[in-house]
Design a protein around this nucleic acid. Sequence first.
DNA 1: CGACAATGAAAAA
DNA 2: TTTTCCTTGTCGC
Length: 271
Amino acid sequence: MPEGHTIHRLAQDYAAAFQGTAPQVTSPQGKFTDSAALLTGTELTRTEAHGKHLFLGFSGSGDEWIHIHLGLFGKVNFGPAPPPPPTDTVRLRLANTTAYVDLRGPTTCALITPPEKRAIHDRLGPDPLREDADPDAAYHRVHRSRTTIAALLMDQKVIAGVGNVYRAEVLFRHRIDPYRPGRDITASEWDAIWHDLVELMREGVRNNRIDTVRPEHTPEAMGRPPRVDDHGGEVYVYRRAHLPCHLCGGEIRTADLAARNLFWCPACQRD
DNA sequence: CGACAATGAAAAA
DNA sequence: TTTTCCTTGTCGC
């Protein structure tokens, strides 16, 4: 379930459960065993998120980081001590006297050095959830590009943390045709998109799910039946192909864009 | 029990 | 542009 909000929430949750302790680090699945052995006995001192990348900072003899990227399938599960016997897909388990956490199916779980961590930050664009983010840096790339805005929003070098749900929903909320080239996005449109993402994603961190429907458009307010989709939140277009648009009643469309399923309302999102 | 999809992205070609 | 990797839940037979 990982877009940027999930990763920032995980940074908070890992810190709450393990920061200031030296958890036992294991890799029941085996792919992280050597690094896990090196880390056991060292203290988790801080956690950090940038886009969809999670960093767990350990201080032993020097600074070391576990770099985690969940990819499409990765999942994290927290629980109270004592931990149950791990299943054979657990890539990484942390366990201290009060809690454990299991990581399964990540694209990346690797021990890295501070310079390697810096290199990752350097290839990522600004993250709406980070204080140090510069929205102008993102717009600089957007407004010089002939690529569609829907593809640019998915490009982590342009803006970090947006995924398939936020891209579809933020474009709907701003009535922007997903196929419009980035160069035709105005500065004020980008400003509105960015600040909307900041608010939506902060709420996503708080609630651990994506909700994008304005209060006046909720099923209750509109006299509609509640959503049926099981992805977790209330949305306008994501995974609503061929269903009626909440606002205009027209049919939501879907298409392949940037290797993912795009959803949009051609009537509401017309340039 | 196999096919398939799912909020992702790097490597290979 | 295509292939590859990672896991789990659901659906149809």
